[in-house]
């Protein structure tokens, strides 16, 4: 039982980690604490529904469609809405992201109607037994794809020139401007990436259950994940996601399903008190 619960928590946590990674990329680049990340997840799920059920695209094309559209929407949101608020108090920016999610939710519900949508993809379903564990193929795929994305983005930030530029920009906007980096382009890119990562998470969550705007609350678990892991830290976000997934499942199994949210936030409060910069964050940047 324990191993089974642990496995499902890790699989779920991998998806949270992916969404949290997107959140962290956005935060690192623009210092926006993005409450709309949950709705970005929903957008990803609906983009997949559009590509697969409405446009009837073949699966690889559909994947491409979701990725490109997600990146575009993210960049557009950054340049039209986020950029004008650069340098404003954090609360105003947080409110802006909340307003964005209100608008996105209403827009989605108008465009797609009230009934929830089913998302079926050629991804494997069913399960198999492995070392006494029942492994769900979809969970395993979700976890593997999430990890692949995480590694891919890790390499991208570390080794490509654009990734390096993005990191440099995130570290210091002034220094970046002086050295001729186009800060706005970098920020747009960060939002595009952040949105895309959330969207990929949405595609999996939509398949695990059903596509509706209610997926938002699952996507929002990325917030505590990022804080627990360390807001400025990319690996921290992934670790935080894993932890949130595992705690959620363990609390549901051994305390009660009601307790899963509070368990996550108790950990978050403890982390804030002991290590405000998060598990893998760097000390000294706890003043925002």
């Amino acid at each position: 039982m324990f191993q089974q619960v642990l496995f499902s928590g890790m699989a779920l946590g991998s998806i949270y980690g992916l969404v949290a990674l997107g959140f962290a990329v956005i935060f690192k680049a623009t210092e926006v604490f993005n409450f709309a990340q949950g709705m970005f997840v929903v957008c990803g799920a609906y983009l997949a529904v559009t590509a697969i059920a409405i446009l009837d695209l073949p699966f690889p094309v559909a994947v491409l469609f979701v990725l490109v559209m997600a990146a575009l929407i993210g960049a557009v949101i950054q340049s039209t809405l986020i950029q004008p608020l650069a340098g404003r108090p954090i609360l105003a920016v947080i409110m802006l992201t909340i307003a964005i999610s209100i608008v996105l939710r209403a827009g989605i519900e108008i465009a797609y109607g009230p009934p929830a949508r089913t998302l079926t993809t050629p991804m494997p379903s069913g399960g198999f037994a492995f070392m006494g564990l029942m492994i769900s193929k979809l969970h395993l795929t979700a976890a593997l794809v999430s990890w692949a994305c995480v590694i891919l983005f890790g390499l991208f930030f570390r080794y490509t020139s654009i990734g390096l530029l993005m990191r440099a920009t995130a570290d210091s906007h002034e220094a970046a401007t002086i050295s001729g980096i186009r800060v706005n382009t970098m920020n747009r890119l960060a939002w595009g990436i952040g949105f895309t990562l959330a969207a990929i998470g949405g595609v999996f969550l939509g398949q695990l259950q059903i596509v509706s705007t209610e997926l938002e609350s699952i996507g929002l678990l990325a917030l505590p994940a990022v804080v627990i892991g360390g807001m400025q830290s990319i690996p921290g976000a992934v670790l935080g996601g894993l932890l949130v997934g595992v705690i959620e499942q363990l609390a549901a199994a051994y305390i009660s399903p009601k307790a899963s949210d509070v368990a996550i936030y108790v950990l978050l409060l403890a982390i804030l008190m002991v290590r405000p910069w998060g598990l893998l964050g760097q000390r000294g940047i706890n003043r925002v």
């Binding site: 804080v227 009601k258 307790a259 509070v262 936030y265 108790v266 978050l268 409060l269 405000p276 003043r287």
Partner: peptide, 28 residues
């Protein structure tokens, strides 16, 4: 009390944690 230790965004998050604890207590 967390304001003794953390500020800004981190304090906001600590109040968010308080929110979940209190509403859990309410539910129980």
């Amino acid at each position: 009390l967390p304001s003794l230790r953390v500020r800004g965004l981190y304090f906001v998050l600590s109040t968010m944690a308080v929110h979940y604890m209190v509403t859990f207590g309410f539910l129980e």
